[in-house]
Amino acid sequence: MLEVSGLSIHFGGLKAVEEVSLSLGEGKICSLIGPNGAGKSTLFALISGFLKPARGRVSFLGEDITGMPPHVICRRGMVRTFQIVQPFAAQTVRENIAVGSHLHRASRRAALAHAEEVARRVGLDNQLDKLASSLTIAGRKRLELARALAAGPRLLLLDEVLAGLNPQEISEMLPVIRAIRDGGVTVLMIEHVMQAVMNLSEYTWVLNHGRLIAEGTPAEVSNNAQVIEAYLGRGTAERLLREAAGA
């Protein structure tokens, strides 16, 4: 449902994203991993219209969406979250989620009712009347997810929704994300928490210095020499192999 081909953007001399191509099938949870500064969030920004690529194309549901503004892309069914959560701080949880619900619901009453239903799906239903600014980090991450979900996406781009959560909170979130996929929403997630990637993701792309260096199932990717070197430094893969052989 999502086709990215030859996507590139440079910031001055820095090639933040360089010739990235990937193709995402419907109904899956896929992930994008890579060391810090690899260009993952930049790639998300390019796909969702927050940045315009210097070269390359993005097509979604068979239509070219390259260079379209973010709100138009959202209306076509691709909704993203932000790594640094940006709740509408002065508003309650219910009102925050309702902003997403309003995308397909003109009536205030319908949007607020729908917001409640979405809150239940992500486990925020007991905090509906709290101000967004009073939520914990875990609560804000859930809110970010709920708002995006309320907009009725076909493709959900999740930018590190698990970062900053403790193991308990992470294991609470995993079934939520799986349930979203089971509800018919395709998920592409940027994630550092490998437990989540291994657990949820059916297919993974690895980005390093703005380029894709590997792709495959999480198990395949985590045994890829280039990936190990990207994370742990040059020569590590060889050393690990030697040690494994020696042991």
């Binding site: 927050f50 959202c74 932000f82 508003q91 997403g100 995006a148 309320a150």
Partner: peptide
């Protein structure tokens, strides 16, 4: 009000 509180988030939700 969404645009007031965060233009980026609002745009990401189709505003």
């Amino acid at each position: 009000q969404a645009a007031r509180d965060s233009e980026e988030s609002a745009a990401a939700l189709g505003v």
